[in-house]
Design a protein around this nucleic acid. Structure first.
Lengths: 255, 255
DNA sequence: TGCTGTCCCTTTGTCCGACAAAGTTAGAGT
DNA sequence: ACTCTAACTTTGTCGGACAAAGGGACAGCA
């Protein structure tokens, strides 16, 4: 019969980790609010009683996690983690796991349909204004696939935003970051690709305005199917996402 | 009229960031494969020509991003970022953004339905075996809400895995991490909560076996609605997710 | 008064050197 | 071939150091 456990496992995390955890705890449970200053490295050295190098390693960890950042004067303060920044970590992971475009397509279908449903139900006037503005800009660059692809990505971010569901916004982001960089190629490959894309956006905006869920779902599906048709002219859906996207993601993360 | 921009913004990233970026690039574009050793800190000092403190800060950044980790002997090697680890960052972000349970519920409804649809279509024998094993364990702890909640969380991870769609697996994870810790409470609050939960799981497994999509979707919906009913006995869906979940998430991240 | 330039102090990013603890390797001894 | 021990290496932490950049106060000037 095994002995009854006398001791609890003791916490042997390195000091920099403990520093990071301690600060994280204060932020997450609200004692330090987003925007609050954290203090200088020297302050933290005094408070934690460890060397500045140790503090700095702990800070890097939190900074990478998006929990704290440095303002223009490089002073530390807590902040609300930005979705796109975090999502780019996930996109990177998806690339390394070599997910296929089929997985991306299927997941995006689900997530974008859910987004439009939410948007149809809850979009505000302001959301609609943003979407219309985006549409206008899209029409202006209809002949430029790169610019148009950028507008398209933004459009779908705005739709997700209009759904007023931040969980959904976050969930779709990693897939979107990998998905939308290909739009440029798919638009180029299909005759009338640009106009079709913009037309779909217009129908989506109208659907939201009319609170017409059916139309919203329908046009989201068509829009994605257009992407798929365009993509399959270039490559198989079963190809894994390529490394080239990471440059895009890396640039986005830095912002 | 403003001057035409003569200069591009110059890249003034600190050295530790450049170190991290350089290593990240090599990993992401595949020159360093997951599992490959990175070399000792001393090696990196020689290669990059910067101080060890600088190298260490760069390493922390990558470590936090899940791109590299230290094995049992603390040597560095590249590795495949683990979904749950990354997702816990996102869960944390959702908590800080004070998302509501309604958002969580709505997003989970979408994501879990998509998971079951994928599972019905593509689950393997092995997936089914894992699910059945989970079911057996659930039945064994049907009277223990805490253990049962844990089984429930695992069950849905397994369903997502059975969908063979890693994008979906990843997308559902942050919501799930916040969602499933409440299952314990909802099971406790509802008469026959435990048995209902296990029955739903059984129906889901059967649906996957029979490749019966309708049934899968139906029982996923019911299962989530059960959660909702249980939750609404305790609190409003419009309450924001509480800080208490973070302890759960923090423990999970460490693993 | 409002703007500008200067000096000083603080803070950050980086460097150097050091050391204990833990892990690794090589060699001695059986 | 196996074990035990004695170097050697590597990591985590420490102390101190310094240049560059920012912030603040203060004087000078319009």
């Amino acid at each position: 019969m095994p002995l009854a456990p006398l001791f609890r496992p003791i916490d042997v995390a390195p000091a920099y980790q403990k520093v990071a955890d301690a600060i994280e705890r204060e932020i997450v449970n609200g004692r330090i609010k987003p925007g609050d200053p954290i203090g200088t490295e020297h302050d933290l050295v005094r408070q934690f009683g460890v060397n500045r190098s140790t503090i700095r390693e702990g800070i890097r960890v939190l900074e990478e996690g998006g929990l704290i950042s440095r303002d223009s004067s490089r002073r530390l303060h807590a902040c609300l983690p930005r979705y796109t920044r975090l999502a780019s970590r996930l996109s990177r992971a998806l690339v390394l796991h070599e997910v296929t475009f089929r997985e991306l397509y299927e997941a995006s279908m689900t997530l974008e349909v859910a987004s439009i449903e939410g948007a149809v139900e809850r979009a505000t006037e302001e959301n609609l204004a943003e979407l219309s503005d985006n549409l206008a800009r899209s029409e202006a660059v209809i002949g430029d696939p790169a610019m148009l692809a950028e507008c398209d990505a933004e459009f779908h971010v705005l739709v997700a935003k209009a759904s007023q569901n931040r969980v959904l916004q976050l969930a779709r982001e990693p897939a979107a970051q990998l998905f939308y960089p290909t739009t440029e190629m798919t638009v180029t490959g299909v005759a009338e690709g640009g106009p079709r894309l913009v037309a779909a956006h217009r129908h989506l905006i109208e659907a939201i305005q009319r609170r017409d869920r059916e139309a919203g779902v329908l046009w989201t599906r068509r829009h994605l199917q257009d992407w798929r048709r365009g993509f399959e002219k270039i490559a198989s859906l079963d190809r894994s996402v390529e490394h080239m996207y990471m440059e895009h993601a890396q640039a986005a993360r830095r912002r």
